[in-house]
Simulated assay, not measured.
Amino acid sequence: MHICFITHEYPKSGFPHGGLGSFVKTIGEALVTKGIRVSVVGMNYTSCYEETTASGVSVYRLKRSTVKGLSWWLNFKAVTAKINEIHKLHPIDIVETAELGLAFLPKIKEIKYVIRLHGGHHFFAEAENRGVNWWKGFQERRSFAKADAFIAVSKYVKTHTEKYLSYRNKPLGYIFNPINTDLFHPIAVPTVPFQIVFAGTVCEKKGVRQLLQAFPLVKEQFPAATLDIYGRDWLFPDGSSYRQMLMEKELPKLGDFATSVHFHGAIAFESLPSKYAQANVCVFPSHMETLGLVAPEAMAMGKPVIFTDRGPGPEIITDTVTGLLCNPLDSQDIAEKILWVFEHEALASEMGEKASREISSRFAVDAVLNKNIDFFKSLIGKKI
């Protein structure tokens, strides 16, 4: 079997990437261990073509077009050409991409095309209570019409996407994203007392601003508390920095407490476990997620985790049993959950241990991998 993933976010040293890139890397490398050929095609982070093989995964990073007004079309053409080239050398069985990925991709009749619902334009338009952009909406509808099958990474993303887009009675699987438990597992290192750790894109929908607003409420009761924020910056449409906005508008409101807040920027995926390991509590007050990898990753390490009570939050965490759920728009509620962890050390530790066991059974690569392989086999009718 040969599976080709289309993504522009496949991790590359020295460049930030999102959860989609992490997912493809984790599942791609796992598929290779099962004897499955895996290719990844996407635009490069730099203005050149690169072809590499990493942990058995063939990665094709294409030269990104800079032609104003036509770059989107030329990039799609480049992806199409590369898929055709790969298919002639090593016939592809499955092409998988995210919601918009098939919009202008011509189909090859021998290949089954799968959309994995990571959270598309319609999904986040609804979640963030904003209008649907006609151009992105058109692309997504066109892409969905071409798909032969779909995979939802949570029940929530499946339900809320189908409010706007039809699955056309095509096969649909419900499969969590896998967690690399070789990386994310309990590590015996000293915990930094009262350290709060956030990881993820530094943007409004990840709840970073509300977390900053909650911090003084925690600091007043625990003066030694610190807040460490890891993740890439997000840019407004005019190119200005969201992180810079926080530093200019939100940090001054913290007064002297601002010196206990540290923005570390993006770090290597492999470095995340060490940051979680030393945290007293990991907090991810997202306004919306399709699934969210950071929460289950930190949970797999046995850390007390505070996650959003919105969207798929309750699918991941059983509140007060395997973690805590918070209202991501209520800084007071976020603060109260952090304070609970600081005030109930033994109970929080027990909660983290339960979380680690549950995540290992529900999100472990092998368990999730087999579900993916079975789904792919059902589409192509091939034995591996």
Score class of each variant (00 low, 15 high):
Phe5Lys: 01
Glu9Leu: 04
Glu9Ala: 11
Pro16Gly: 07
His17Ser: 13
Leu31Gly: 00
Gly35Leu: 06
Tyr49Arg: 12
Thr52Gln: 14
Lys68Cys: 01
Trp73Val: 09
Asn84Trp: 09
Lys88Glu: 15
Lys107Phe: 04
Tyr113Met: 09
Arg116Cys: 00
Gly119Pro: 06
His122Pro: 11
His122Gln: 10
His122Val: 10
Phe124His: 11
Glu128Asn: 09
Arg130Pro: 04
Arg130Thr: 12
Ala149Arg: 02
His160Met: 09
Thr161Gln: 08
Glu162Arg: 12
Gly173Arg: 10
Tyr174His: 15
Pro178Lys: 03
Phe184Thr: 10
Ile187Leu: 15
Ala188Arg: 14
Val189Cys: 08
Cys203Asn: 15
Gly207Arg: 14
Val218Gln: 01
Ala224Thr: 12
Asp228Phe: 05
Phe236Ala: 02
Asp238Trp: 03
Gly239Gln: 12
Tyr242His: 04
Met247Asn: 09
Lys249Arg: 15
Pro252Trp: 11
Lys253Arg: 13
Gly255Phe: 04
Ser260Thr: 11
Ser260Cys: 13
Phe269Gly: 12
Leu272His: 04
Cys282Val: 08
Pro285Phe: 00
His287Cys: 00
Ala295Pro: 04
Met301Asp: 02
Gly302Leu: 02
Val305Asn: 06
Asp309Glu: 14
Glu315Pro: 07
Cys326Gly: 01
Ser331Gln: 10
Ile338Val: 11
Phe342Gly: 05
Ala346Trp: 07
Gly352His: 12
Ala355His: 11
Ile373Ala: 09
Asp374Gln: 13
Gly381Leu: 05
Gly381Tyr: 10
Gly381Asp: 10
Ile384Phe: 15
